[in-house]
Nucleic acid binder design. Sequence first.
DNA 1: CCAAAAGTGTTCCCGTTACACCCATGC
DNA 2: GCATGGGTGTAACGGGAACACTTTTGG
Lengths: 244, 244
Amino acid sequence: MVDKSWKIPEVALAVDLAVLTVRAGALQIMLVERGIEPYRGKLALPGGFLSDVDENLDDAASRELAEETGLELAGLHFEQLGTYGAANRDPRRRVVTVCYLAFVPELASPTAGGDARSAAWVPATTALDQRTELAFDHKKIVEDAVERARSKIEYTTLAAAFCAPEFTVADLRQVYELVWDEPLDPRNFNRKVTGTEGFLVATGAQTSRQSGRPAALYRRGPAHLLHPAMLRPPPPKPDTTRTS
Amino acid sequence: MVDKSWKIPEVALAVDLAVLTVRAGALQIMLVERGIEPYRGKLALPGGFLSDVDENLDDAASRELAEETGLELAGLHFEQLGTYGAANRDPRRRVVTVCYLAFVPELASPTAGGDARSAAWVPATTALDQRTELAFDHKKIVEDAVERARSKIEYTTLAAAFCAPEFTVADLRQVYELVWDEPLDPRNFNRKVTGTEGFLVATGAQTSRQSGRPAALYRRGPAHLLHPAMLRPPPPKPDTTRTS
DNA sequence: CCAAAAGTGTTCCCGTTACACCCATGC
DNA sequence: GCATGGGTGTAACGGGAACACTTTTGG
């Protein structure tokens, strides 16, 4: 092995963020409107280049999100989604981006600070719609982010990360239903999540509401993995019988 | 948003490979002995820097593996494991590495070409042993790779990627047992894998052996996902009864 | 016949599903 | 009381675990 460091090509390293929430009855993702070319005016994931050579990737991700959207990741769940580095993904020059995935509750203020004029929550269905154009390869990244979210809530307790600090079983069920786009049986769901040790911690408090029995309030429990997993209902099978 | 491209810090981008196989009754990983500082003489994952600005990450991974170990990834399964970019992971300068995970069958020749003098299969247990020192943060990467392999064979058909083109149910079972380090019931395992549509395709041929009934030979089937998943037997619970 | 490994049948158990039913609140 | 949603009981079903048993080879 020879030392090749003298001829290392110059690659720009960026971080991008796919920040998901559940609000207004839909899974939504934080997008910003680009202010510069290329793709000026198009929607894009928040993100940007490392600020200096000694900045950790995670720190860069937090910083960029705060700068562009005013959203603080401190204390919230985020994880690496993947690295996107196709040679031609940025027309200007070679850019490799490390993308992070974050799950935030609805109350995280959408555009509370920074260069946040253009930041907005967009329904995932809109972002993924054929007619919506996203900058760079960001549509592919959004696809991957949504798919990761869908599978992660199967075997982890991360669905609760979309809920406010105190929430009802119905709130949590709605998260699953909206992320999976599948209806769930409220009764079986209730038994399952309350029976899974470490998922929910009862606060003792109850909701008051206009009608119907008050629901118990819970906080997130200490468990991170779900045993057994929440099973996503299988999509209705294509009907193999003829319709003659 | 302002254009910051003029002050993008110089980060070196590398690719590393965690190539796993099952051979000699153990899960093993391909490691090379470093020929240069830092960590000269220490074991490391094969990998290196991009060869030029227009090289795709996947291509760089294939190329580096072939150069360093003579192993060809063409046609084999590999996927991105993660990106490791702690600011201080390389003492020379800032290096961010995109790491790939590959599953190869035993017959992949260990050191068939290239700069392969120092390439060798090392049991995963040895690589992860406290007394084994690996270069950079490669021990952490190996941990992640092994953990990813353990969980991936639960819900995908990738265990078969460790087997020769034609293999018996017992061969496949041994893969699971060695990767998970858990014994499995041969009879239930047989029913399960042969009953899962698309996992195995019978060739009709049989093995001949010294003793015992010949086993049917199979090839990998078209399925990639396992439905239902193979369940990893839960590690024996700590005994809660006293030993008094 | 015996040993060894492949493969089948059967039973038990547990978790999911589907749905009837009861509970607690506002009006 | 009645509507509305929260929560429990329960029976049917399906897959996994455990293990007795049969099959097919070599010696």
